[in-house]
Design a protein around this nucleic acid. Structure first.
Length: 287
DNA sequence: CTGCACGCCTGCCCGC
DNA sequence: TGCGGGCAGGCGTGCA
């Protein structure tokens, strides 16, 4: 699902609901998702105050004032929704004043501001962890990840040299989180179309100039998608339940057999499978 | 070390 | 209407 723009949109949506708030109650409704949750995760989060929300690649990091950080990954189908408590009588606690939880609602946070945050993930490829904030840099999921594409260390010389080593299709190389963080299948397809580079081209066979040209394109595609609130295909939603709308701007993703949108190009979009994943591209203008 | 197939899950869509 | 097959935004594991 969610690639960097979707995760960033979720993070931004969570900020007003979580930053500075006390976690009044935390409930895990199953033992884990992709991996088991840490022992006592819910108890260890309860009563802590949220200092700030960060994002690293496709991971949301929730720094708490008890020295711990919670990590959330949305996998393919994860979504996080925010609800406000409804009407209630004087004797009821506010926990009772929400709509009933639904299938696949796996983790629920309640803050001290009549707010409920629900992590729902039908396919359970998502993950959640809790660890000491000081050890975040050594976390096995975070440590191997390459530079943030919207950050200062991601530049033309870096990407050109990183790709020059790789004897794999550029499509696969850009999906490799060690080369650049946060890209997934949709945005790699879109980036390669804008760059007029075939997804089949070997990464090491790109000139330094063409490899470097990917840097501003990656930045542009991701920035535009964040601006649009991400892309909603099926599962993904913003934290208020709204769809993202960058899917309306796709040039190639899920457009098999439709006309290429490159100016003056008469090609049609093709779908091929690389490393078990669909690549959409125009064989006429992507070389 | 690199590159790649596989498996993890549920749900939806399509063809028969 | 039902059923089987294929497909889906990710990524760690294990193999050659």
């Amino acid at each position: 699902m969610p690639e960097l723009p979707e995760v960033e949109t979720v993070r931004k949506g969570l900020i007003p609901a979580l930053e500075g708030r006390l976690l009044a109650r935390v409930e895990t409704r199953r033992e884990g998702l992709r991996w088991p949750f840490p022992q006592n995760m819910a108890d260890d989060m309860t009563g802590a105050r949220v200092l700030r929300l960060r994002r690293r690649s496709k991971y949301i990091l929730i720094d708490l004032d008890n020295g711990m950080t919670a990590l959330i990954h949305l996998g393919m189908s994860g979504r996080i929704l925010i609800d406000k408590a409804g009407e209630r009588d004087d004797t009821a606690t506010y926990y009772d004043a929400f709509t009933p939880l639904e299938k696949h609602d796996h983790v629920v946070l309640w803050t001290d501001q009549d707010t409920r945050i629900v992590f729902n993930d039908a396919r359970r490829f998502g993950a959640m962890d809790l660890f000491e904030t000081a050890t975040a840099g050594d976390h096995p999921l975070l440590k191997p990840i390459g530079p943030e594409p919207l950050g200062n260390t991601f530049d033309e010389p870096y990407l050109a040299s990183a790709l020059a080593m790789r004897n794999t299709p550029i499509k696969s190389a850009l999906l490799d989180q060690k080369i650049v963080a946060g890209l997934g299948n949709i945005y790699v397809c879109e980036v390669l179309w804008r760059a007029h580079i075939s997804p089949k081209r070997k990464a090491k066979n790109l000139s330094a100039k063409r490899a470097g040209s990917l840097v501003p394109i990656i930045r542009d595609v991701l920035s535009e998608a964040i601006e649009a609130g991400g892309s909603s295909l099926k599962d993904y939603r913003q934290t208020d339940g709204e769809l993202g709308y960058f899917q309306h701007n796709f040039a190639v993703y899920d457009r098999e057999n439709q006309p290429c949108r490159t100016a003056d190009c008469t090609g049609n979009i093709a779908r091929i499978v690389q490393s078990g994943r669909s690549s959409f591209y125009c064989a006429k203008c992507q070389r």
